[in-house]
Design a binder for these strands. Structure first.
Lengths: 264, 264
DNA sequence: GAGTGGTCTAGACCACGTA
DNA sequence: ACGTGGTCTAGACCACTCG
């Protein structure tokens, strides 16, 4: 068709707009089923590929997902909180509860589990940079996936320079009894400072498989670099958090003038 | 075709795999041009739509973008840091510089600018919750977009309950001289605590327009809720950070046992 | 088995910025 | 003007899984 005066929205855009509006205003509730492709073809009198293009927009916006052969469904989000600062101070759970009454923070009743796999590898560039490693240097990595009721919750890969990890329990593919920090401290490597970074991006195909991500699900990558008193990097932890399952929470005293903002 | 023994990868997947590998190993460098659709059709002996499906995968992974009529290009990322805690303590720029030698944190030489627009609206649900507003209650919102060299850098919307904002400079569509916190404090509303939350999701079409986002670019939504000494919410700030332009950095003392982790 | 979405083909015309 | 990607059509066959 290509109606000239149709507000510069293509057919697939207008089909997507209608469905999106229904999702946002609640007339298509979370978990609800959308019309089938055939129904949308009939309703809008267009070819199947046009309908699929429209649905593809919503899939990549993270609003819907296809469950073949049941149809398309409005995605439902049950996000859990992730607290990077949890070791710094006690969690003011009472206050948070009070503040966010309607948010689902529940973890109760869900069975946690994890897989751990220890290996010696060439580090990815992001890790090599932060650990200040020479090209070709190897690292010990503890690759972990944490699950809740069998559903992957996040990936957590800890990288250690070889000289830091050797002769410690870090090399063992089991949970570290008192945590990696105390294990390192027992060997004279005390971490006194950390830098946290968050990147936001679309997942790699490997992450999609490992964390069972639906299309349209971005991830936050939380990179923690720990340093000793001499400012030498001791470890680098790379957590991959699916965006549809987490909210990252910091609680802090202070004024917090609007946003922090960019700096250079 | 549907070759049975082809490792369960579809044709479009295999075309995408080849291009992705080239991007990741550097043989297709950032900023470089990909083959045209016609060239890929010829090379792989497939229909145009199949080629487009393959390229669509990479577009939605955020790896490439189309610049019509020039072709597809490998996306280049120049991410700037965003420091939510910048008002809490001086930035240890010296240390950070030392740690991340190769990351581009430069803001120098780029001309900042912003647009501000003040209005009274019904708050979005996420804000109404955090401000503990009754249904139907209105808020004052200062909607801001910050630019660097004319390129949208992030959106920053500050919401205030009506009773907090009225009679203050917040209602004026100009920059607030000493910042909103001091302006509120001048009126007896002192913020003593804040909770930070980060959500990761795909942008809405409105955000895509406002921030000029390419397809495959997720956003981090930084929600700050500020409280006074009586634990009453004073303000809620919603920053929308394009994932291709930012890295969020926290610097903190302490042990930071691996990751914090989920809590309930 | 029936019906869903997933993949692929082979065409057509359009919109747009570069040159 | 040209070549690029963007949109749309009208078909075909396949893979999957629910009932």
């Amino acid at each position: 068709m290509t109606v000239p005066g149709s507000a510069h929205r293509s057919v697939k855009q207008r089909i997507a707009d209608g469905l999106r509006a229904g999702i946002l205003d609640g007339s298509l509730p979370a978990g609800g089923r959308l019309p089938t492709e055939a129904e949308l073809m009939e309703r809008h009198q267009v070819a199947r590929n046009t309908v699929r293009d429209a649905l593809g927009l919503l899939v990549h916006e993270g609003l819907i997902e296809a469950r073949r052969p049941l149809g398309y469904f409005v995605r439902d989000r049950h996000r859990m909180d992730y607290r990077p600062q949890s070791d710094l101070r006690p969690r003011p759970d009472d206050l948070v509860q009070d503040v966010f009454l309607t948010t689902d923070f529940g973890i109760a009743g869900r069975e946690p589990s994890q897989t751990i796999e220890v290996s010696i590898v060439a580090p990815p560039p992001v890790v090599a940079e932060r650990l200040r490693l020479d090209a070709g240097a190897l690292v010990v990595v503890r690759r972990r996936v944490r699950f809740l009721d069998g559903e992957p919750f996040y990936g957590n890969d800890s990288y250690f320079p070889m000289d830091v990890a050797e002769q410690t329990a870090i090399m063992s593919p089991a949970d570290i009894a008192r945590g990696a920090n105390q294990e390192l401290a027992r060997h004279g490597r005390v971490q006194v400072r950390a830098v946290d970074e968050f990147f936001v991006r679309m997942p790699t195909p490997g992450e999609v498989r490992r964390l069972e991500l639906s299309p349209g699900t971005p991830v936050a990558v939380h990179v923690i670099t720990g340093f000793d008193a001499d400012n030498r990097p001791l470890r680098c932890v790379l957590s991959v958090l699916p965006g549809d399952r987490h909210v990252i929470v910091y609680d802090r005293p202070g004024l917090s003038e609007n946003d922090g903002g960019p700096s250079g």
